[in-house]
Each structure stands twice: as structure tokens, then as C-alpha cells.
């Protein structure tokens, strides 16, 4: 697991894919879904809704997230008969979700619409530093990344997947995933230059106050 893995992302997914009990549980749920069992479908939904919704929200923005997340789950339930278990269920679900997002974004860009988040002035908050503040700035900067960069950065750094998994999800080579991630991080560094500087300076000031 990469250092950025966290319980919400891959930790959970690997727990699901990892243990034999978990795999059996997952197979039971999938079998129930294939029979159209409402309880099983609810269980599968509950297992993945947070991961799917967070991914969709960050990829396309809040105004479209709900509709697209619904589309993703409807496709999951319709597509389950075709799920052969070659990939982990979590990876398969991520792939489906990412496909829905990327084709939506491609259509949006063909129509010349822009993401409503871009260009919005940030909330008029007093200048603050620290992790919560930087997190907000990072969410805003994510929306400004090109779609391909954003996809890889979310999957790797936010969701904690490795390059092999990302390559399977996006349908690219491992090397491409690595180079896209590097470019995405460099672009983020540029977008967040002043915020990163402000946070660094605040740490230096704090450290000097503690020293004094």
C-alpha cells in the first residue's frame, strides 16, 4: 500500500479484495444483485457509494455529480452479469465510474461548456493557513487540472490506488500513469504556488515562536 492509501480508498477496497471471507461475502452480494435482490443491491451500493460519489464529485463538480453517480450505479447493476471477476470488483467499479466521468467531460468540452467551478472566486474567508485551509485550496485547484491529469491524481494521491490499478481503470500503460501523475503534481504545484508558500512560511513562524 502506498503511503497515501487510506481507509476510505484502497484500504477498504483491498480489504474487500483481500481476505477469503471478504471475497466470499462480495461474491454473495454480487450473486444477490444478479438475482435482482434489493437487499444485496443496497449492500453493494452502501459499500461503494462513498468512493463512487467522491470520485464523480471531484471529476465533474457538484452540479452534475448526483446524476452521474446515479448513472454509474445503474450501469454497475446492469453490467454485473458481464463482470467476470478478472479484475477486483473495486477496480471494475472505479473503471466504470471513471469512464462515465471522462465521457461526460469529453461531451461537455465538445459543447464548449466549462466547469462551473472554474473561475469562481473562492469563498471570502479570512486568510488562514493550516491543513483544512490547504485542503480547500487543493480541491479548488483540482478542478482546474486537465481531465486526464485530474483522473490520475485523484486515483493515486486521493484514493490511494497504485499505477497498475490506475492503468487498468483508465486503460493506459503503467508508464503513462506515472508520467501523467508527475505532470499533474507539477501543475498542482504551480496552481497552488502562493498557498504552499504561505503554509510553509506559517510553519517557519510557528517554529521560531516555539524556539523563542
Amino acid at each position: 500500500m502506498t503511503p497515501v492509501s487510506k481507509a476510505l480508498g484502497v484500504g477498504e477496497a483491498r480489504a474487500v479484495d483481500g481476505g477469503a471471507d471478504e471475497r466470499a461475502e462480495e461474491q454473495r452480494i454480487v450473486a444477490g444483485c444478479l438475482e435482482g435482490n434489493r437487499q444485496a443491491m443496497t449492500e453493494l451500493y452502501e459499500r461503494y457509494q462513498r468512493r463512487v460519489f467522491s470520485l464523480v464529485l471531484r471529476m465533474v463538480g457538484s452540479s452534475e455529480a448526483e446524476e452521474l453517480a446515479q448513472d454509474v450505479f445503474v450501469r454497475i447493476f446492469r453490467g454485473l452479469p458481464k463482470f467476470r471477476g478478472d479484475a477486483a470488483l473495486g477496480t471494475w467499479i472505479y473503471r466504470l465510474a471513471m469512464n462515465v466521468c471522462l465521457s461526460f467531460l469529453a461531451k461537455r468540452s465538445r459543447r464548449g461548456q466549462i466547469d462551473s467551478r472554474i473561475g469562481q472566486s473562492p469563498e471570502p474567508t479570512p486568510p488562514r493557513v493550516g491543513n483544512p485551509w490547504l485542503r480547500d485550496q487543493l480541491e479548488r485547484a483540482l478542478a482546474e487540472l486537465p481531465d486526464g491529469y485530474r483522473a490520475v491524481l485523484i486515483l493515486h494521491d486521493v484514493e490511494g490506488l497504485n499505477h497498475q490499478e490506475i492503468a487498468e481503470i483508465i486503460g493506459c500503460r503503467v508508464g503513462t500513469s506515472k508520467s501523467q501523475l508527475h505532470k499533474a503534481r507539477m501543475r498542482m504545484r504551480k496552481l497552488l504556488g502562493s498557498e504552499l508558500d504561505a503554509e510553509r512560511e506559517s510553519k517557519v513562524i510557528k517554529a521560531s515562536e516555539v524556539g523563542a
Binding site: G9, R50, F53, E66, E139, D157, L196
Partner: peptide, 30 residues
């Protein structure tokens, strides 16, 4: 900068789907 970016990204919170979404998904799928 890379280290702080990655740390911050990994600490972003997941967001739950709106509660009505399950009903809509089931209605559309069942």
C-alpha cells in the same frame, strides 16, 4: 511541495452520496 501536496490530497475527505440517491438507483435498476 510534492510531499505536502500528496499528504493533503490523501487527507481529503470522502463525500457520501445524497440519501435519496439509493432510492433513485434502485427504482431505475429494479
Amino acid at each position: 511541495d510534492i510531499r505536502r501536496l500528496v499528504q493533503t490530497a490523501s487527507a481529503l475527505d470522502g463525500r457520501d452520496a445524497p440519501p435519496q440517491l439509493l432510492t433513485r438507483v434502485l427504482a431505475a435498476s429494479l
